[in-house]
Simulated scan of single mutants.
Amino acid sequence: MDNGQQMRITRRAYELWQQAGEPKGRDEEFYRQAARELKEGANKSNEGNSPASDCKGRL
């Protein structure tokens, strides 16, 4: 994992922690959730990058 990706996860985990009311002792839970969210977001953005999707609307 590169440093930029780790920083994005950390920032998102902090946002989630704040939204939950800043509970003590749940930092790992929020970190895992943030990593999962960012991974899912990356997967969704890559789904539209197939060669077949590039041809949509042009045929």
Rank of each mutant, 00 (worst) to 15 (best):
D54R: 12
Q6Y: 08
G25A: 04
S45E: 14
A34P: 03
C55M: 15
D27P: 03
E29V: 10
A35W: 02
R26D: 05
D27I: 08
G57R: 13
K44W: 07
E29F: 13
D54G: 15
G48P: 09
G48S: 12
D54C: 09
E47W: 07
E15V: 09
Q5G: 02
K39N: 07
R32I: 03
Q33I: 01
Q18P: 12
G48H: 13
N43R: 14
A13Y: 04
R12A: 01
L16I: 02
M1Y: 00
T10I: 05
R26I: 01
R8V: 05
Q5I: 01
I9V: 14
E40S: 09
N43Y: 08
E29C: 02
E15C: 04
N3E: 09
G25H: 08
Q18W: 08
K56S: 15
A34S: 00
A42F: 04
K56G: 14
Q6I: 06
I9F: 01
A13T: 01
A52Y: 13
N49F: 08
K56I: 14
E28I: 09
D54V: 10
K24Q: 05
P51M: 09
K39E: 04
E47R: 13
K44L: 14
E22N: 13
I9C: 05
S50H: 14
E15I: 05
C55G: 11
E40F: 06
Q18E: 15
L59Y: 15
R26S: 08
L59V: 14
P23Q: 08
G48C: 10
Q5V: 00
K56W: 14
T10S: 03
G25W: 05
F30H: 00
N3A: 11
W17Q: 13
L38R: 01
K39F: 02
E28P: 03
R12W: 03
F30A: 04
D54T: 11
E29W: 11
N3L: 07
T10G: 02
N49W: 08
L16A: 02
